[in-house]
Computed example of a mutant assay.
Amino acid sequence: MALNQTPDQKVHEGEVLGSVKRTISAVDGFGALSQLVNAAQECIEIHAVEQTKRARLHTYASAEVQRIKTAESILKGYFEQSFAERRANFDALFSRLDQALEQDNTQAISDVLRGIVDIAKTSPLADLGDLSQIRAALDDPDQVWDL
């Protein structure tokens, strides 16, 4: 019995691959070589195809990220401009309200307050229109964005 062998285990003896009972012909050798070459070529082709797919996906992802960044830049600019205009409008209206209050001009006070409320009711997003149209524009690869 060999070391670390239990009585239930058997030792298998013999050749691992067995002996070649016949001579391998040149045709058999060439066939095996052809199979090996074909398998290697198929592997190389699959690798090339998959590498092309990855490159295409990377290009697509890069283009989409750039579109998102462009849209973000445009939206930020719009909000900065819109809120700057709103701020200027509110500043002017509150200045007029102060003047109307100093002059005790009730008609001017009423008009200015109506203007403040009207501006406060609107949202910069409301001026953008239908958001589904914006989504469609973002999805359109031919959309031209003015910066």
Rank of each mutant, 00 (worst) to 15 (best):
I68W: 09
R22M: 14
P124E: 06
I134H: 01
M1A: 13
D28F: 01
I68N: 13
D140P: 02
L36S: 12
Q133S: 07
K69Q: 10
A137N: 11
S34N: 12
Q66Y: 06
G31C: 04
G129F: 07
A84S: 11
Q35S: 08
A39G: 04
V117L: 09
A137I: 02
K21I: 05
N4A: 11
E85I: 00
L128K: 08
F90P: 00
I46Q: 08
S73M: 11
A120F: 00
P7C: 03
A88T: 01
L131V: 15
F30Y: 05
H58Y: 09
L33F: 07
G18Y: 00
D28L: 02
G18A: 00
A100S: 09
D8K: 08
K10E: 06
Q5G: 05
T106F: 14
R135K: 14
V11S: 09
A63E: 08
N89M: 11
G29A: 11
V27T: 05
D28K: 05
R22E: 15
V20R: 15
L33E: 12
R56D: 07
Q99K: 12
H47P: 00
S34F: 03
A84W: 01
R87N: 13
V117R: 14
T106G: 06
E45R: 01
A71H: 13
D142S: 14
F90M: 10
